[in-house]
Amino acid sequence: MPKVALFVTCVADQVFPDTAAATVRVLEAAGAEVVFPDEQTCCGQPALTAGEPDAAARLARHHLDVFDGGGFDAIVAPSGSCVAMVCHHYPHLLGDRRTDAERMAARTFELTQYLVDELGVDDIGARLDTTVTVHDACHGLRNLGLGTQTRRLIEATGARVLEMTEPDTCCGFGGVFSFGFPEVATRLADAKLGHAATTTARYLVTGDLACLMHLAGRRAKIGPPTAPEPVHIADLLASGLPAR
């Protein structure tokens, strides 16, 4: 049985613990044993995007100290963006420990990437009778090269995927961007919600909680929702698993 260290991410830990718990359930349903290294904090991405790589590197070193050890086969997070931080940015950020950073990056995976590409599991045993549209979150898509994994997992449950226009266009979150440029960020959220609504799907699913926070926050603000309900892929899949 593969042993997986959960890289929970600070957002899931603090704001969406149910999604973190759903991630554990999904991983277990796929046949993994999950451990939680409780010294972990945050990958440091907020500081990097704010333009403070030194502060980000300090968090990166801590993350490396926590996860570079043995005792598990893979490190899995319910966020393409946080995994991209580790896989795409850490090797540059941790110049003095580049080899260690690359070794950790090689066994760090986003949830759907781990299930489909590493475990070879599309069907985790969840069953759903619903319709879903998928937002391809940017860092998973372009930094990690994710593509069909989320759709394959959804379709294996029996749910139907209804594709929206421009599923690969940014939702407008972008970290500090969503605070610094709220007008453009909000406009992008409106476009994404509009495209999702046109599909008439019940759920709008993606693999990044930050995108969901932005989209759900916008959807709640504009009143009676016409757009599908934003849901994380882990929550969607876990909702179709038999009760324990």
Binding site: D13, A21, F36, G217, R218
Partner: peptide, 24 residues
């Protein structure tokens, strides 16, 4: 800058790590 156009989710009452520690 966020809340003018978007609701902000509140932090959970119990973090995931506290829940994990309680359950495990």
């Amino acid at each position: 800058a966020w809340t003018a156009t978007r609701e902000l989710p509140r932090p959970a009452r119990e973090s995931f790590r506290d829940r994990w520690a309680r359950e495990h």
